[in-house]
Amino acid sequence: MTTLLYTEVEEELRAAVRALLADRCPPSAVLKRVESPAPYDLDLWKTLSREIGVAGLLIPESYGGAGASASEVAVVLEELGRGAAPVPFFTSSVLATRAALDAGAADLLGRLASGDTTAALAVPFTATPYHRAADTVEASGTTLTGTVADVAGAEAADVLLVPAGGALYLVEAGHAEITTRPSLDLTRPVATVAFSGAAAARLGSCDVAEVLRFGAGLLASEQLGVAEWCLETTLAYVRERHQFARPIGSFQAIKHRLADLWLDVVRARAAARNAAADTSPLAVAVAQAWNAGVAVHVAEEAVQLHGGIGMTWEHPIHLYLKRAKATEIALGTPGDHRAALAELADLPG
């Protein structure tokens, strides 16, 4: 039976991820890292992927993975969202892994499961499951040529999985030119990936739209985590911040806004759990149409309700605002997902 609750196994996984992040990458550490030459925390990623074993969650046991469900992956994403964690879990262990599964790339799946290899799907992070633009990379025999813009997770990847002509190709990262550009989301920068006659191995056929849809459904759980952190941090702040000789959280003008935000987050949790348990196009579109906007709205309100400190670089809220706004655009905007619902829910325009 489909359930929207968390299982005990999921809660244990959550606790392990949360404890690791609290120890190794509190928001202050993330803030320091984002302007360094290495925005991704690859040491943390090693611990997370190998010791906690999150890299192989989606991969069947026969390939050396954990054979877990999307619901467990969703819990990890909630925690990584709460931490605005600069690790390539979503890009490698969700998007690229789902593509490798689709292509039946047994050898690669084994390496992904062990955490030895990190991958990125060479598709713009702005691509949607609904209107796939033509591939910008062409295969010619065993080489690839072309450029893909706005690839997330590319600079943390050892290998790139590249869709071309209906098939998925593997290119060693060293054979591509990866140019990270200054990105709105400091914790998940995007890069332009160029191939000029790069040596490539064909992995199999791959339905990229389905991969993006699967990713979009789970991204709703990351957005939930972002919204939860913003709400909890703001609640703590308004209880403590005094103006007019009382905590600002005692003013109804503030309390009522927070009550409404909480209600949005409650519904985002239900939508995220539903999209993890039921990865149908309708459940995914509902979760993205709702959660993407909620994460942005809660982050924006968090900035406002923190007042002056919320506008400063030193307070980590902006990391969450940037993550929220970037994921709102990624894998289809709320408007794209609503447009899809016109057909899915039989409400034609």
């Binding site: 609640l235 308004v238 209880r239 009382r246 905590p247 959280g249 005692s250 503030i254 309390k255 009522h256 927070l258 009550a259 909480w262 209600l263």
Partner: peptide, 10 residues
């Protein structure tokens, strides 16, 4: 909601 669930002061 804000007082009993979110623990904000009255």
């Amino acid at each position: 909601v804000s007082e009993r669930v979110l623990g904000l002061p009255s």
